[in-house]
Amino acid sequence: MFVRIVKLSFAEENIEQFLANFETVKQKIRNFKGCQFLELYQDKNNTNIFFTYSYWATEDDLNNYRHSDLFKGIWAETKPMFNAKPEAWSVDKLESLA
């Protein structure tokens, strides 16, 4: 399993639309084969910056999602709302304390 972190920065006027779109697709993303966990965060100081955290069983699962019609549709809807280039990291979780 590994974690995918994506930083998304939106124009202020697009935040409400992004959140509405996320609401409609979040279960589809979470239920995509290999996705084990999904969270959305909003920066406390720069409220136009969001982060998604998703856990994937394998890199192939993430790549299958990234090449799916679901992702292509989400990306087509979301991309015009950005005010900066998205950044993404794939990381291995080394420790987790609850």
Score class of each variant (00 low, 15 high):
residue 58 T to E: 00
residue 98 A to G: 13
residue 57 A to C: 01
residue 28 K to I: 10
residue 15 I to A: 05
residue 70 L to Q: 06
residue 36 Q to T: 06
residue 84 A to W: 09
residue 98 A to L: 11
residue 83 N to H: 05
residue 32 F to E: 03
residue 21 N to R: 13
residue 17 Q to S: 11
residue 66 R to W: 01
residue 68 S to I: 02
residue 73 G to M: 08
residue 12 E to S: 14
residue 25 V to G: 09
residue 94 L to N: 10
residue 98 A to W: 09
residue 33 K to Y: 07
residue 74 I to Q: 06
residue 30 R to G: 07
residue 71 F to G: 00
residue 88 A to D: 00
residue 42 Q to R: 14
residue 4 R to Q: 10
residue 82 F to D: 06
residue 74 I to A: 06
residue 68 S to V: 04
residue 26 K to N: 12
residue 50 F to N: 00
residue 44 K to W: 04
residue 6 V to W: 05
residue 30 R to F: 10
residue 60 D to S: 08
residue 4 R to I: 08
residue 38 L to H: 10
residue 23 E to R: 15
residue 34 G to P: 01
residue 92 D to T: 15
residue 44 K to A: 13
residue 96 S to C: 09
residue 96 S to R: 07
residue 36 Q to E: 14
residue 10 F to Q: 01
residue 3 V to M: 11
residue 66 R to G: 11
residue 31 N to K: 13
residue 22 F to T: 08
residue 38 L to I: 10
residue 45 N to Q: 15
residue 64 N to E: 08
residue 25 V to Q: 11
residue 9 S to N: 15
residue 62 L to Q: 13
residue 98 A to P: 12
residue 36 Q to P: 03
residue 63 N to V: 04
residue 41 Y to S: 09
residue 95 E to H: 12
residue 28 K to S: 15
residue 48 N to F: 05
residue 76 A to F: 03
residue 83 N to T: 06
residue 82 F to W: 09
residue 57 A to S: 04
residue 63 N to L: 12
residue 51 F to W: 12
residue 1 M to N: 05
residue 64 N to C: 04
residue 84 A to T: 13
residue 41 Y to D: 08
residue 65 Y to S: 06
residue 69 D to E: 14
residue 21 N to Q: 11
residue 91 V to A: 08
residue 98 A to D: 10
residue 37 F to L: 12
residue 67 H to Y: 02
residue 46 N to F: 06
residue 1 M to W: 03
residue 96 S to G: 13
residue 77 E to L: 02
residue 37 F to V: 00
residue 29 I to W: 00
residue 37 F to Q: 10
residue 6 V to R: 11
residue 35 C to V: 02
residue 72 K to I: 05
residue 13 E to I: 05
residue 59 E to W: 00
residue 90 S to V: 03
residue 10 F to L: 03
residue 43 D to R: 11
residue 97 L to I: 15
residue 60 D to Y: 07
residue 28 K to R: 15
residue 82 F to Q: 09
residue 7 K to F: 00
residue 98 A to F: 12
residue 8 L to I: 03
residue 13 E to N: 07
residue 70 L to H: 09
residue 1 M to Y: 02
residue 87 E to A: 14
residue 18 F to K: 13
residue 92 D to A: 11
residue 30 R to D: 06
residue 53 Y to T: 14
